[in-house]
C-alpha cells in the first residue's frame, strides 16, 4: 500500500515538474511581452527528438533519412543539455519570425497568438517530415548505470521518475537563482516590470526579449527530453498536449508569476494522479476543468500579481 502511494505521489511530482517547466517557459515570455508563445509545445517536441538523436538514436522507416543517425551517441545528460540549447535556439528563431515583425509594426498583441501558432504548426510538421509520425523509444542503454527501481523504506519506485523530478527541481532552482541574483536575470525582470523605464535605465530591452525566448525554448526542450526518456516519444505532436496543459498551469498559477507556475505545475500533476485508473480517459480533461474553474473564480491565478481587466 505504502509503495503505491509513494509511487503515485512521485509520478504526480514528476509530471508536475514537467508541467512547471513548460509553464515557466510561457511565464518568461509573457512577463516581458504580455503575449503567449503558442509554439511552446512544438519546442517541447523538438527537445525530445533532439535528445533522442544526440544519444545516437536512428531515424525510423517513415522518416526523411531512414536509418540515419549520429555515428556515436552522447551520454544522456549531455544530450539533454545540448537538446535544451538547441530548442532555445529554435525558440529564438520563433521570436525573430513570429514576434519581432509584429512588434516592430506595433500590431495588436493578439496577432502574435496566431503567428506563433503558425510557427508551431510549421515546426511540428517539419519534425514529422524528418522523423515520421511513429513513436520512438529511447535505447535501453540510455540510463545505463541507473538501477531500474529504487527501494525506499520497503517501497519500490521507478528511478527514472526520481531522476526526472531531480532534473526539474534543479532547473527550476537554477532559473530562480538566475532571475533573482544575476545581472541578466535582474535586467529581464526590470523589462518585465516596465520595458520603457528599463530602456531608459540602459537595459537593452530587445536583447532581454530574445533572451527570454531562448530560456523559454530551452525549458520546453528540457521537458521534452525528460518525458522522452521516462515514457517515450509519442510522435511529433506529443508536445502539443503538454503545451496545452502548460497553458492550464500558467493560468492556474497566475500569468507572469514564476512561483505560481511551479506551484501550479505540482498541483496539476497531483490532480491528474488522483484520477482513479478506471476513469483514466477523463484524465486529460482534469487540467482544463481546473483551468476553466480558475479563470471564472480567481482569474489572477493562485499567486498571480496582475489583476485581470474585468467588465
Amino acid at each position: 500500500m505504502i509503495d503505491v502511494l509513494l509511487q503515485t505521489l512521485l509520478n504526480a511530482a514528476a509530471s508536475g515538474g514537467v508541467y512547471a517547466l513548460v509553464a515557466l517557459g510561457y511565464t518568461l515570455v509573457f512577463s516581458v511581452l504580455g503575449v503567449i508563445n503558442f509554439a511552446q509545445g512544438a519546442l517541447f517536441s523538438i527537445g525530445g527528438y533532439l535528445t533522442y538523436l544526440l544519444m545516437g538514436g536512428r531515424i525510423g522507416v517513415n522518416g526523411a533519412l531512414p536509418g540515419w543517425g549520429l555515428p556515436a551517441g552522447l551520454p544522456f545528460w549531455l544530450a539533454l543539455l545540448l537538446a535544451a540549447a538547441g530548442s532555445g535556439l529554435v525558440g529564438l528563431l520563433v521570436e525573430r519570425v513570429a514576434f519581432a515583425p509584429l512588434r516592430r509594426r506595433g500590431a495588436e498583441p493578439l496577432l502574435a497568438l496566431i503567428t506563433s501558432l503558425g510557427a508551431g504548426v510549421v515546426l511540428v510538421n517539419l519534425l514529422q517530415l524528418l522523423m515520421g509520425a511513429e513513436g520512438y523509444a529511447f535505447p535501453e542503454a540510455a540510463l545505463a548505470g541507473l538501477p531500474n527501481a529504487l527501494v525506499i523504506g520497503g517501497a519500490r519506485i521507478r528511478s527514472v521518475q526520481v531522476l526526472l523530478l531531480a532534473v526539474c527541481a534543479f532547473a527550476v532552482l537554477v532559473l530562480t537563482l538566475w532571475l533573482e541574483r544575476s545581472k541578466g536575470g535582474r535586467a529581464l525582470r526590470a523589462v518585465a516590470e516596465d520595458a520603457t523605464t528599463a530602456q531608459l535605465l540602459g537595459i537593452n530591452s530587445e536583447a532581454m526579449v530574445r533572451l527570454a525566448f531562448v530560456v523559454s525554448g530551452a525549458l520546453a526542450g528540457l521537458g521534452g527530453g525528460l518525458v522522452g526518456v521516462s515514457v517515450s516519444l509519442a510522435g511529433p505532436y506529443m508536445g502539443i498536449s503538454y503545451g496545452l496543459k502548460g497553458l492550464a498551469v500558467l493560468v492556474l498559477g497566475g500569468l507572469g508569476s514564476v512561483s505560481g507556475a511551479i506551484a501550479g505545475g505540482l498541483l496539476m500533476g497531483l490532480a491528474e494522479a488522483l484520477v482513479p485508473s478506471d476513469a483514466s480517459g477523463w484524465r486529460d480533461a482534469v487540467a482544463f476543468a481546473i483551468l476553466f474553474a480558475v479563470l471564472l473564480l480567481r482569474p489572477s491565478g493562485l499567486l498571480g500579481r496582475r489583476p485581470v481587466d474585468r467588465v
Partner: peptide, 15 residues
Amino acid sequence: VLRLQGIYLAIATIA
C-alpha cells in the same frame, strides 16, 4: 466566459 478579456477569453475557450 465573456467576463474575461483578450488572451484569458482565448484560453478559456480552448479549455
